[in-house]
Amino acid sequence: MSTKQLIAITPICTSYNVEVSFVATLKELGLIALTRQKEEFYIHIDEVPTVEKMIRMHRDLNINPEGIDVIFNLLERVDTMQSEMTALKNRLRLYEDDL
């Protein structure tokens, strides 16, 4: 993994005004993957939007890491169901379109 694509956790936490321990808990729960180099933890650039979303949920809505875990699982299910619904709608058109 190129270090160019890794972003240090500390500045993210400073920018969002959250404790580094919060991000550490997210890692412990398996919600995000962090890489350790020397004394600093880094996150892959592709995971930044996810961790930002988690931070916003924590900061804006007072949701703890366990709650975030539950929400993310549910959102994933909503997402799957939405794709299924789109596929089903497209399939339903087969019977609705009268030639």
């Binding site: 916003r56 949920m57 804006d60 809505l61 929400i71 909503v78 997402d79």
Partner: peptide, 13 residues
Amino acid sequence: RKMARKYHPDVNP
């Protein structure tokens, strides 16, 4: 707080 939890864009993608 109650309404923010309900309508927050992160929980209503």
